[in-house]
Amino acid sequence: MILNVDGIRFRYNGQPVLRGMTFNVRKGEVVAVLGPNGVGKTTLLRCINGILKPSGGAVFVENDNVLKLDAMAVARRIGYVAQRQNAAKITVFDAILMGRRPHIRFRVSDNDLRIVDGAIKSLHLEKLAMRHIDRMSGGELQKVAVGRALVQEARLLLLDEPTSSLDLKNQVEILKLIRHVAKEHEVGVVMTLHDLTMALRFADNCLFIKDGNIHAAVPPKEVTADIIREVYGIMVDIHRHNGIPVVIPQ
C-alpha cells in the first residue's frame, strides 16, 4: 500500500469541507477523484500532502505519517501538480529541474541533469527544452508541470486537473504517460479530473465525492449512470465503444 488516508477532515472558516474520508492507494494504482466544482477535490489533494493542515485524521505514505514529516521529506515522497502554473522567464529544462529541489541542497549533480533529460524525452518536449516557459501555451506549461512532478521521483503523485487546458492529443498523451509511470515504477497516483470519459478510461479506481464524503469508490467497470446522477445531479448514458466506456449527458 502506498497511500492510506484515514478519516481525513478539513474545515474552512468553520464550514466542514471534508467530513472524514478514508481510502487507500496501492502501488501502481491510478485513482481519479471525481465530483462537481467546489466539492473539495483540490482541498483533498492539498490535505494529503500537508499544504493544508487537516483538522483531523491521518495520512500515511508507505507507513510514514505525512503530517509529522518536514516539508522537504514530504516533497521527496509526494509530487504535486497544481492547477495553475506561474510562468517565469526560465527555460523548460530549468523549470523541470526545479522538481529535483527536494533532492538538491545547493549543487545540481549530473544525475539530476540526466533525470530531467529523461523526463523531457518521455514527455516529447525535446524541441522545447531550451524555450522560455513564459512564451508557451497553457497546454505546454501543463506538460512542464507534470514533468516537474515526475522528476521528484516521489512514491505518490497528486495531480490537480492535469489535463485542463490540454488539447485532445495531449490529454491522451499525458494520461497515458501518467499511467505508464504508475505501472512501470509502482508509483501511486491520485488525480482530480472533470472529464468522466477520460477518468473511466485511464483510472483504476474512481472516487466520487459528495457533501464532503466519499459517495462511491468503484473501478470504472462498476461506475453506473445512477452514481453519476447522484453525484453530479445530471442524467447520463454510459455506452461502451470498443470496450471503452463513454459517458454521454442526456
Binding site: I51, A71, Q85, G99, A145, R148
Partner: peptide, 13 residues
C-alpha cells in the same frame, strides 16, 4: 516563481 502551490509541493516553506 513557479507559483505558491507548486513551491509548497516542492517542500519550500
Amino acid at each position: 516563481d513557479a507559483g505558491d502551490e507548486t513551491a509548497k509541493g516542492l517542500g519550500v516553506k
